[in-house]
């Protein structure tokens, strides 16, 4: 999605120009575009009257925000304690191999998937779990992880 003046205006009109709204406004931008386009971040800072350096500090500090476009499907693998003791690490490595992600986290070349780690989705009873977009998948094994990706690939 390209950054349009209208789309940004719709977000910014909810916020009076005060620095306390910086995180909320950036969260709205992130939700809208799935990342923080530079021009949008600059516009938010200008509107709220905060220095761009503050916007940058916030955007890079919090995990909610990404500075690069994200894949179509968001694969968040839980590496919380309960998942860890039930073998989540091996499941995560399976996702990494299948998606050919070189770093710890990242986006596939075809922009189909973004893989990231989360610490506890609060579904410990079904550990290990992963959340793909809004849906939570529990009791994962390496094999199930492979199946899961295949179903999303064909969607």
């Amino acid at each position: 999605m390209s950054v349009t003046f209208k789309a940004l205006e719709n977000i910014l009109e909810h916020y009076p120009p005060s620095s306390e709204h910086l995180i909320s406004a950036l969260q709205d931008v992130q939700a809208k575009f799935k990342y923080l386009p530079p021009e949008a971040m600059t516009a938010v800072c200008d509107h709220l009257g905060v220095p761009l350096s503050r916007g940058w500090a916030v955007a890079t500090f919090y995990k909610t925000f990404s500075l690069e476009p994200q894949g179509e499907h968001d694969v968040a693998v839980c590496l919380g304690t309960a998942c860890h003791v039930r073998g989540a690490h091996n499941v995560y490595e399976k996702f990494r191999r299948e998606l050919e992600i070189t770093g710890q986290e990242g986006t596939t070349r075809d922009l189909k998937f973004s893989l990231r780690q989360v610490r506890c989705l609060g579904c410990c009873s079904m550990a290990p779990v992963a959340q793909v977009d809004e849906e939570i998948h529990g009791n994962l094994s390496q094999r199930k992880a492979g199946h899961l990706l295949r179903t999303y690939r064909t969607r």
Binding site: L22, Q27, A57, K63, R119
Partner: peptide, 25 residues
């Protein structure tokens, strides 16, 4: 209502308050 930005340290009281103020936690 304020939404956290995904930073464990914001459970610490002063970091939480910094975050509500719109700063890094």
């Amino acid at each position: 209502l304020n939404l956290g930005g995904g930073a464990f340290v914001c459970g610490e009281s002063t970091a939480l308050m910094a975050s509500i103020e719109g700063k890094p936690g």
